[in-house]
Amino acid sequence: NQASVVANQLIPINTALTLVMMRSEVVTPVGIPAEDIPRLVSMQVSRAVPLGTTLMPDMVKGYA
């Protein structure tokens, strides 16, 4: 089972991601792979992401 990136806190719209905002977790459906966490740092979210939400490619500007 592949771990995905999950929000560790509420991430407001247009916030630049930092390591403390993200954790890896095995979830369904699968989201952005956990190994991409270093690449996500400083990228902005395109919408508010609630705590515990799996990050999907369309939620991060410039990821897809």
Rank of each mutant, 00 (worst) to 15 (best):
L55P: 01
N8P: 01
M43F: 07
V6E: 02
P29R: 05
Y63M: 06
M59V: 10
P38K: 12
A48L: 10
V27P: 01
I11H: 01
D36M: 15
P12R: 09
V45C: 04
I13R: 10
L19V: 13
G62R: 06
V41N: 04
V26W: 10
D36E: 13
T53D: 09
P33W: 13
Y63P: 04
M21L: 07
V49R: 03
P50Y: 09
V30N: 09
N8H: 15
L10Q: 11
I37W: 03
M59P: 02
A64P: 11
M43P: 00
N1W: 12
I11C: 03
M21P: 00
Q9L: 07
P12S: 10
V20F: 12
I11A: 00
V5I: 13
S4L: 01
P29W: 03
T54W: 02
L51R: 09
P12N: 08
T54P: 10
S4D: 00
L40G: 00
V20T: 08
P29E: 06
T28H: 13
P38M: 14
P29K: 06
Q9W: 09
R47K: 09
L51F: 13
N8V: 08
R47T: 12
Y63Q: 03
Q44I: 13
L40A: 01
R23S: 10
T28N: 12
T28C: 06
S24N: 09
Q2E: 12
R23M: 06
S4V: 02
V45M: 07
L19I: 09
V6M: 05
L51D: 15
P38G: 10
S4M: 02
S4F: 03
A7D: 02
P38V: 08
K61A: 11
A34H: 13
V6Q: 04
S42I: 03
E25C: 04
E25Y: 06
A64L: 14
V27L: 08
N1H: 09
L19N: 08
R39L: 13
Q44G: 05
A48F: 11
M56Y: 12
G52S: 08
A3H: 15
D36K: 11
V5Y: 00
V27E: 02
S24A: 15
N1Q: 14
E35T: 14
L51P: 15
M22P: 00
Q2N: 12
S4T: 06
R39Y: 14
I13M: 14
V26G: 05
G52C: 03
Q44R: 09
V20P: 11
Q9A: 12
L55M: 13
M56Q: 12
L55G: 00
G52N: 12
A34V: 08
Q9Y: 09
V49H: 02
A3F: 13
R47I: 15
I37E: 03
M56L: 14
A64V: 15
S24K: 14
R23W: 04
Q44E: 07
G52M: 05
A3V: 06
S4R: 02
R47W: 06
A16N: 10
S46T: 11
S46M: 13
M59Q: 05
M22W: 02
M22L: 08
P33T: 08
Y63A: 04
P50G: 08
P29M: 05
L40E: 01
G52W: 05
L19C: 05
A34T: 07
T15E: 08
V41Q: 06
E35P: 09
A48T: 09
V20C: 04
I13K: 12
V60T: 01
G31S: 03
S24L: 06
N8I: 09
P57Y: 07
A34F: 08
R23N: 07
I37F: 03
A3K: 10
R39C: 05
A16K: 08
V41R: 06
T15N: 05
P38Y: 09
A34I: 08
R23H: 05
V5M: 02
L17M: 12
L17K: 00
L19F: 15
N1Y: 14
L51H: 12
T18P: 00
N14A: 10
L19P: 13
I11T: 02
T28M: 14
S46A: 15
T53N: 11
S42P: 02
P50L: 07
V27I: 08
M22Y: 02
Q2M: 15
E35I: 09
N1K: 11
A7W: 02
L19R: 10
E35D: 09
E25K: 13
L17E: 01
I32N: 01
E35G: 13
M59E: 03
A64D: 13
A16F: 11
S46V: 12
L55C: 02
R47P: 02
V41K: 05
M43W: 14
P33A: 11
R23A: 07
K61V: 15
A3Q: 12
S46E: 13
L40K: 01
N8W: 04
V41E: 06
E35M: 14
V20I: 09
R39W: 11
V5A: 14
R23Y: 05
G62Y: 07
A48Y: 14
M43S: 10
G62H: 11
Q44D: 05
T18L: 04
P33D: 06
S24R: 13
D58F: 11
L51C: 04
P57M: 09
T28W: 07
V45H: 00
V41H: 04
A48W: 15
L10R: 11
S46F: 06
L51Q: 07
T54H: 03
I13G: 13
Q44F: 09
V20E: 13
I32Q: 00
Q44K: 10
A34E: 08
V5G: 01
M22F: 06
M43I: 05
T54Q: 03
E25I: 06
N1D: 10
N8K: 11
D36S: 13
L40S: 01
V26F: 05
K61M: 14
M56D: 05
L10Y: 10
V5E: 01
A7V: 09
M22R: 00
G52L: 04
S24G: 12
D36F: 12
P33H: 09
M56E: 08
M59F: 10
V5S: 03
A64Y: 08
E35W: 12
T15Y: 07
S24W: 06
N8A: 11
V6T: 07
P38H: 15
V45R: 00
V45W: 00
I13Y: 07
A16Q: 12
V30E: 12
L10N: 12
A7S: 11
I13N: 10
V60L: 11
P33M: 09
V6L: 09
L17V: 03
V5W: 01
V30S: 13
A64I: 15
T54F: 03
V5T: 06
I11M: 04
I13E: 14
S46G: 12
P57E: 11
M59D: 15
P33E: 06
M21I: 03
P33L: 10
R47S: 10
L10F: 12
V49T: 07
V27R: 12
E35L: 10
S46N: 14
V49F: 03
